[in-house]
Design a protein around this nucleic acid. Structure first.
Length: 731
RNA sequence: GGCCGCUUAGCUCAGUGGCUAGAGCGUCUGAUUUACAUUCAGUAGGUCGGGGGUUCAAAUCCCUCAGCGGCCACCA
């Protein structure tokens, strides 16, 4: 044995050995199952992934305590994330998603993901993770698609599915809706118009949307307007007199403008939310091409900006414009691509009714069918579940599982369609109009997106129900498929023996998105919870406790640390002294400290190994006997106590405590005290002492193994032979 | 704005009503031809954020004040 433990000499061969001896063979024993939270398929390892160590240490601990432990890995297509990354790549080539029809775009992204997806498992292996790689499941694999479709069809039949309005950022120039991540915010100075509205004056930057107003709002505690709340007022407008009701909502800032706001639910995010709260009518006045529609009377057909000027001029002429503040500064959201103003627009979306679905989840949490570690998350979970509204499951992106709903083009002449024609020129409009110049096959081939009114007639079916149908272009929210993760990862027979699975480890911030949905789907489809324990990982932060982010430049690459200090040191640094569901500061000092510990472990082994090769010299053996016996008894007592505490900590998910226990015992009791006290006896070849120390040491290697698998296995093989594995030992 | 946390040694943090409140890193003093300098023995360093309460007993439970952080705000 070298005088130092050198991780780089051992890690690869030891891992290869585990793949052959552990992963390649079916285990016997009571089933213990963990499903790996699928990382993004195109991702590479970041420090946060280090927390998968929790899963791995449980797998190893269970393997060594007689369980048939199984860890099933997988990858998520991560809809929006991935498409966004891909599009950034496209942008470097001067292209965008709008240059492709959706089939081609999907195929290209698929290839992109495939090219990038091998890396993260390689990196997981460097950290020592013992998952059944051969069983990896990808969320776009056919069996997953089948399951997701079947679920949707069942939900549709059982009336959990409906279509309703949802407000999105829409670029009328690019013909697409955009998510939060692809909009830019710019500061700009625009005129703020003060418009007379019956007895009120109100301030707005968007007079052209007034045809879509369905209420006026004031702050509930604003004394100036209290007498109007709940009443309808009459006002003169450009299209004649009209009546509109006054509501009170705390969203209104009484300090801003005049304290009165017009509410246009169809064209403003905040107004939409207010509209939902007060059940206001949604009146769209702008169409998908960015022009005003029939509700705008004489302004119909004008583009938004033109209309704004014309409306303002006409209001002034009619004496309805009190004043204009030309220097109003505000923030405007614009398209990341064409930089034009985005139009918040109401687009019909697919929804899942959650009221009935979430009840069994609440009940299961209450009955402790699922336990949370740490426990405080039960409270959060309940809070989230109670306030959870219906779930909008459609996403206006290509990279995902396309919703299996079909629209008959003859029955739905107003379907709004965007597609690339044979010349690769983008065309858009209602299907009725487009079919006058293009045939359906051309439209199908070049289809980019379609939008169907809430009232549109549709058929839900896994495959195309007929010639004259177009499939919905929206894809499922990623959580709709990953929410069914526990239902698609095991083999059929394993659902009898391995379900509910035993532990789910994950970050607390996706508890409401993912964990609650998995429970919901599992209880809905199998009437069982998907897992018994949820362990919340800690967020991995930098040495100062700052969240890692590219913009801060404080991102730590775990592989760099593994190269420098070894996987054991990295793993232990993440666990040592950190509690569940909080934060772990990944300071290099911590990792170095754990590297020193690994070396200590190695050297105790080296010392014992050197001395057990000597044979007993009778005299000394007897001479040291009495004193040694006393110390060995003490050692025995202390070791038993340690072992008990360790077991209790492991079984109650207190991994930091378990590791701390072993660390303290190995270093400061076994090495610093007992080995020192028994050193003379050991060196003189007292066999009893040799055996006792070796036995306690080996048992500690076993306890430490889940946390520091490499050094413990390396020393184990020195004692037990090159073909032995500590994972095949039991304790 | 809503929700959840945090405040304990110089730094980063454990601490689940009950021994003299702990760890890692750092400080300072000393040891050494060593299993390991990635070492060992020792040392200093704490009004457990402030105030109040419950209790035989509070870092721990309750109230309150102050400061800090996270998540969400188009599903809370």
């Amino acid at each position: 044995m070298d005088s130092k433990f050198q991780p780089s000499l051992f890690e690869k061969p030891l891992y290869d050995g585990w793949e052959k001896t552990i992963l390649a063979h079916e285990r016997r024993g009571r089933p213990y199952t963990i499903l790996m939270p699928p990382p993004n398929a195109n991702a590479s390892l970041h420090a946060g992934h280090g927390m998968y160590v929790i899963d791995d240490l449980m797998i190893r601990y269970k393997l060594m305590t007689g369980w048939a432990a199984l860890w099933v890995p997988g990858m998520d297509h991560a809809g929006f994330e991935t498409q966004y990354v891909y599009e950034k790549n496209l942008a470097k080539q001067g292209k965008s998603r709008l240059d492709f029809d959706r089939q081609t775009l999907f195929a290209n992204i698929y290839q992109f993901v495939k090219d990038n997806s091998g890396l993260i498992y390689q990196q997981f292996k460097r950290l020592g993770f013992l998952a059944q790689w051969s069983r990896s499941v990808f969320t776009l694999d056919q069996p997953v698609l089948d399951a997701v479709f079947a679920t949707f069809v069942k939900m549709e039949q059982e009336k959990y599915v409906y279509r309703s309005d949802y407000i999105v950022n829409y670029c009328t120039h690019c013909g697409t809706s955009l998510s939060e991540l692809e909009v830019d915010h710019v500061e700009r100075t625009d005129p703020l118009y003060y418009i007379k509205y019956g007895p009120f004056v109100l301030a707005t930057v968007r007079p052209e949307t007034k045809f879509g107003d369905t209420a006026l709002a004031v702050h509930p505690r604003d004394k100036r307007y209290q007498k109007w709340v709940g009443k309808e007022i009459e006002a003169a407008g450009l299209l004649g007199k009209f009546r509109i009701k006054v509501i009170a909502d705390t969203y209104v800032d009484p300090e801003f403008g005049t304290g009165v706001v017009k509410i246009t639910p169809a064209h403003d995010h905040n107004d939409f939310a207010v509209g939902q709260r007060h059940h206001l009518e949604i009146k769209s006045v702008i169409d998908f091409s960015g022009r005003l529609n029939h509700r705008a009377g004489p302004y119909a057909g004008l583009k938004v900006k033109q209309a704004r000027g014309r409306v303002a001029d006409d209001l002034k002429r009619a004496g309805l414009l009190e004043k204009v503040d030309e220097h109003y500064q505000h923030s405007v959201t614009v398209c990341y691509k064409c930089r034009r103003d985005l139009e918040p627009m109401v687009v019909p979306n697919w929804f899942i009714k959650v009221d009935k679905l979430k009840q069994p989840v609440l009940a299961a949490v209450k009955a402790k069918a699922v336990e949370f570690h740490p426990r405080r998350y039960v409270k959060q979970m309940n809070q989230w579940l109670k306030t959870m509204h219906d779930w909008p499951i459609s996403r206006q992106i290509v990279w995902g599982i396309r919703i299996p709903a079909w629209y008959n083009v003859d029955q739905n002449p107003d379907l709004y369609v965007v597609f690339l024609d044979r010349e690769k020129k983008q065309q858009q409009g209602t299907i009725k109009r487009l079919l006058q110049q293009h045939d359906l096959a051309e439209i199908k081939a070049g289809l980019q997106k379609l939008m169907a009114d809430k009232a549109a007639r549709y058929v839900v079916n896994v495959s195309c129900p007929g010639e004259r149908f177009l499939q919905e272009t929206d894809t499922f929210d990623t959580w709709f498929s990953s929410g069914q993760w526990p239902l698609v990862t095991l083999k059929k027979t394993e659902y009898q023996t391995r379900y509910p699975t035993d532990m789910l480890g994950t970050l607390s911030d996706i508890l409401p998105f993912w964990v609650s949905r998995m429970m919901m789907f599992s209880l809905y489809l199998r009437h069982q919870v998907p897992f018994k324990h949820v362990y919340l990982w800690s967020m991995v932060a930098d040495a100062q406790g700052q969240k890692m982010s590219k913009s801060k430049g404080n991102v730590i690459n775990p592989i760099t640390l593994v190269d420098r200090y070894g996987a054991d040191a990295f793993r232990a640094a993440l666990i040592f002294g950190t509690s569940a569901g909080s934060k772990v500061n990944l300071a290099e000092d911590r990792v170095r400290g754990m590297r020193n510990f690994a070396n200590k472990v190695w050297n105790i082994g080296r010392f014992l190994n050197l001395n057990t090769q000597r044979t007993a010299a009778d005299d000394q053996s007897k001479a040291t006997g009495a004193a040694s016996t006393k110390i060995m008894k003490k050692l025995e007592r202390e070791f038993n106590e340690e072992k008990q505490k360790y077991g209790r900590a492991m079984d109650s998910y207190q991994f930091a405590r378990a590791l701390g226990q072993v660390y303290q015992f190995i270093w400061h009791r076994l090495a610093d005290y007992y080995v020192e006290q028994l050193k003379a006896a050991l060196q003189h070849g007292n066999i009893e002492v040799q055996e006792k120390l070796t036995a306690v040491y080996l048992a500690n290697l076993q306890m430490l193994h889940p946390f520091m698998p490499f050094v413990t296995e390396a020393v184990w093989q020195v004692f037990k032979g090159k073909h032995a594995s500590i994972l095949n030992s039991q304790f």
